[in-house]
Amino acid sequence: MKKFMLYVVPSAMLFLFVVVMNSGSMLKKPYGQDDRVYEAVKQLETHVKEERWEHAEKDIQYIERAWKKVVNRIQFSVEKDNMEEISQTISHMKGQVYIRDDQAIFEHIYYYYDLWDRLAK
C-alpha cells in the first residue's frame, strides 16, 4: 500500500498541476448567466450598430462584472498581461459607450475579439 501511494501521490499531483495550468481554455467558457463575456460583447456590437446606447451601457456594465468573474477562474493558467489587456480594452469600450463614440468602440470591440481568441491558447 505504501509503495502504491509512493507512485500514485506524485503522479496525481503532477496530473493535477497539468490540469490547473491548462484549465484556462475550459474556464473562460460561460458556466452560468452572469459570466457570458464574449456573447455580451457581441450584443454590445449589435447595440452600437443600431445606436441603442442605453442598451449598450447596460451591456458594458454586465461585461465588466462578467469579466471579473472569469478572471477569478482563469488567473492561474493565463498571462497576467493578457488579462490586463482585456480589462483595459473593456475600460476603453466603457468610455466610448458613455461618449457615444461609435467609431472608436468598434476598434476596441474587434481588438477584444482577437484578445479573447488568444486568451489561454
Binding site: 499531483m13 503532477l14 498541476f17 495550468m21 488567473q75 492561474f76 497576467k80 490586463e84
Partner: peptide, 21 residues
Amino acid sequence: MNEALVVIVRVIIAFFSLLIF
C-alpha cells in the same frame, strides 16, 4: 486578479514539481 493567490498556487506547483523531479 489576486496576484498573491496566483503566486501561492504557482509556488505550490513549482515546489512540488521540483521535489518530484
